[in-house]
Computed example of a mutant assay.
Amino acid sequence: MGCCLRQLQLFSTCMAFALGASVGTWKGAIGNWSMFIWCFCFILTLLILIVELCGLESHFPFSWDNFLITCNCYSALLCLSASVIYPIIYLQFLPNSHDWDRTIISTAFSCIAFVAYAMDVMWTRAQPNVITGYMATVPGLLKGLETIVAGVIFVFLSNTSLYLHQPALEWCVAVYFICFILSSVAILLNLGKCDNRLSIPFSIFQVVLTLLSVLLYATALLLWPLYQFSEELGRQLQRPSDVNCSSGLSTSVCIWDQQLAVVSLTAINLLIYVTDLVFSAHLDFNSS
C-alpha cells in the first residue's frame, strides 16, 4: 500500500510540474513557489521510495516511521498550498483556454498528490507498533501550517518595494520572520527529541511561543493594511483599473494584488495561531 501511494505521489507531482512548466509557470514568484513544491515533493518521495526498496531504513540514526510521517505531512500541506494558491493566481492571467485547461489539470494533479500524501500519513499511523510523529498530531499540523503560510507570505515579500523605507511595514516583515523561526524551533525541538531538555515543560513553552506569535501577528494585521491602503499615505484603497491589475501574465501581478494577498495571508495565519493557542492551552490545562 505504501509503495503504491508513493508511486501515485511521484506520478501526480511529476504531472503537475510538467503541465505547469508547459504554460510558463516558472516566470512568476507564485509559479516558482508551486514549481518548487512539486519538484521538492517528487525528489523527496523518490528518495524515500529508493530507501524502502533497498531496505535501508535501519541504517538511519532516527525513527524511520517518524521521519516518514513528518515528510508526508509536510508534503501534504505543501501540495495543499500549491493547489489553492496556484489556480487563484494563474487562472485570471492566462491568455487562452488551452493554457487554462493545462492549468486546471495541473491543479487537479496537485490535489491528487495532496490526497495521496494524506492517505500515506493515515496508512502509516494505522500500522501496528508505529511511532506517531509530532507532525501527525494536531499541534504539529498547526505548526506546519503556520510555517507554510509564512512561506507563501515570503514569496510575495520578495517584491521589496512593498515595504522598504516604511518602518511600520518593515516591522511587519520582521514579525513574519520571527514567528516563522519560533514555529520552526518548536517543530525542531520535537523532531530532535530535545523538548525534555528545557527548564520548563514543553507544553508551557509552546503556549508561550504561540501567545507571542499571536500578539505579533495581531500588530502586523493592524499595521499592514493601515499603511498599504491608507489614502493619507498616497496609497490606493480600491483596486486600480490599470492594465497591470487586469491582464497579462502572472509576472505582472500588480502591487495592489500583492498587498491584498499579504494581508489576507496574515489574517489566515493569525487564525491558525489562535487555533493553535487555544488547542495547546486546552491540552496543557487537561494534563495539569
Rank of each mutant, 00 (worst) to 15 (best):
T132P: 02
Y74H: 15
F114T: 08
S106E: 12
T103V: 11
L91I: 08
E170Y: 03
T137M: 01
T103S: 12
T160R: 12
N159T: 08
N72P: 08
A150N: 13
Y176M: 09
L164G: 09
I187N: 02
C111P: 09
V175F: 09
L189W: 00
S58Q: 12
T132E: 07
Y117M: 05
L189R: 00
F93R: 15
S75C: 08
L78V: 00
W100L: 12
P167F: 10
S83I: 06
F180V: 06
F67A: 07
I178G: 00
V115E: 06
L164H: 08
D195M: 04
S75G: 13
N66R: 08
Q166W: 04
L80D: 10
L182R: 05
N129A: 11
I153E: 05
C73D: 05
L77T: 15
V130H: 06
C194P: 03
S110V: 01
V84I: 12
V121W: 02
V84M: 02
A186C: 04
A76L: 04
S81L: 15
T137S: 07
I85E: 00
G140R: 03
N190P: 08
L182T: 08
L182I: 09
Y90W: 14
I187P: 01
A126S: 15
L56A: 14
Q166A: 11
F177Y: 01
D99T: 12
D120M: 14
N190C: 10
L157Y: 04
Y117Q: 04
C111N: 05
I178Q: 07
G151W: 00
M135V: 02
S183H: 10
V149R: 03
T147E: 00
V173S: 06
W123P: 05
F114P: 01
A76C: 06
R125K: 15
S63N: 15
I112Q: 11
S184D: 03
N66G: 10
Y163K: 04
I112N: 09
I104W: 05
I153S: 01
F67E: 05
A113Q: 08
L94K: 09
V175W: 13
P61E: 06
Q127P: 03
I69W: 05
F177W: 02
L80I: 07
W64P: 04
Y117T: 02
N129C: 06
F93M: 08
A118T: 05
F154H: 04
P95E: 08
Y86C: 03
V185N: 05
L142M: 13
V138A: 13
Y74D: 08
L164I: 14
H59Y: 13
L80Y: 15
V185E: 06
V173I: 09
F67G: 01
A150D: 09
N159W: 06
V115P: 09
E146D: 07
F62W: 10
R102M: 11
G151R: 01
V130C: 07
Y90L: 11
F177I: 10
I88Q: 14
V115C: 10
I153A: 01
V175M: 12
L189P: 03
I187A: 03
I181H: 02
N66E: 12
A126L: 11
E57N: 14
L80A: 15
L145F: 03
G133E: 12
A136W: 01
L191S: 10
Y163R: 07
C71Q: 11
Q92A: 09
L189A: 03
F109I: 02
G140N: 09
V175C: 13
C179P: 01
C79F: 04
A76K: 02
H59S: 10
A113K: 13
V138R: 07
